[in-house]
């Protein structure tokens, strides 16, 4: 490894799309934690694009097992390090997408957090199953058109609200849960480092816009990520031992329209009759975040 080690722990040259959110998020995570870690990466874009055998982009020990077992594999690694007397300061990290974290893998992850095993789990949430072609997940927000919740003459797209995964992890008694965005790199790096340094099961939920799945230019990944935060659809906070300990203030929240307009997954809302009502409902959920976390105070 070169002297630029923190930047090379996930090397360039992998198969990610231009403007890929996963590679940015994973890079931030490794910049925060450094080389003394073991990464568990459930099935998803990140795993596929970084490890086409015999190549790997990972300069840290890395394992992909299955889609739905990231939490359990991480628990096993942590137990093995302890049993073998190799724990030291080595951090065990899970890095999974919204599908593997919030849907198919939530059972195994719940087990890990209930036991409070000493791992840090990072969900890179790009709000749909991107690896298989943009199907909805429980991370998909209301109104988004995906390949399995398409907009149509009688549908405004996904008709469910986004699952509040961080709240579920808080309910497990996790000592540290934080939301981050790849649009705010320093904030994310700081929180990941903090999470990794805390003993027990800690959770980072990172919002991660996907140009391919959401329909925006690949140069705008960071811009879109910031917009989600700035219109209060994705509040940034820390919850320590069940208490909210920090919130990123948004003094002048932008209207959600600005965020929705910038992505083709929401474009039908601006064309269909009744779309304005859907946009209103989405604005209401942003307003709820503002009130709940006191974002504008």
């Amino acid at each position: 490894m070169s002297n630029n080690q923190p930047f090379n722990l996930l090397t360039p040259g992998h198969n990610g799309c231009a403007g890929c959110c996963d590679s940015l998020a994973a890079k931030y995570v490794l910049m925060a934690v450094g080389p003394d870690c073991i990464v568990v990466n459930p099935t998803g874009c990140l795993e596929v694009m970084t490890t086409p055998f015999p190549k790997t982009a990972w300069n840290v020990p890395w394992i992909h097992s299955l889609f739905e077992n990231g939490g359990a594999v991480a628990s096993g690694i942590e137990a093995a390090l302890k049993a073998l007397g190799r724990k030291g300061n080595t951090k065990v990290l899970g890095i999974g997408g919204d599908g593997s974290t919030m849907d198919i893998g939530i059972g195994a992850l719940s087990g890990t957090f209930e036991r409070n095993d000493d791992i840090t789990y990072i969900c890179i949430d790009n709000e749909a199953y991107m690896n298989t072609g943009v199907q909805r997940s429980s991370g998909t927000p209301r109104g988004a058109s995906t390949s399995t919740s398409p907009a149509g003459t009688v549908s405004f797209g996904n008709n469910t609200n986004k699952k509040d995964m961080p709240a579920i992890m808080v309910a497990h008694g996790s000592p540290y849960v934080a939301t981050t965005s790849i649009g705010y790199a320093n904030d994310m790096i700081k929180k990941v480092k903090k999470a990794a340094d805390i003993t027990g099961s800690t959770y980072i939920h990172s919002h991660a816009p996907c140009p391919t799945g959401w329909g925006f230019d690949s140069s705008k990944t960071i811009e879109i990520a910031k917009l989600a935060v700035d219109c209060c659809l994705w509040p940034l906070y820390e919850i320590e031992n069940g208490e909210v300990t920090s919130v990123k203030k948004i003094r002048n929240p932008k209207p959600v329209e600005e965020y929705l307009k910038a992505q083709s997954r929401f474009k039908h809302l601006f064309k269909m009759e009744g779309g304005d009502k859907e946009i209103e409902a989405i604005q209401k959920s942003a307003d709820k975040n503002i009130a709940k976390y006191g974002l504008d105070k």
Partner: peptide, 18 residues
């Protein structure tokens, strides 16, 4: 919390050298 996680935990542990 399940047999699926039992074998999965061992996958992680065995790959770590246990």
């Amino acid at each position: 919390e399940s047999e699926f996680s039992a074998i999965s935990a061992l996958i992680g542990a065995s790959a770590t050298g246990a």
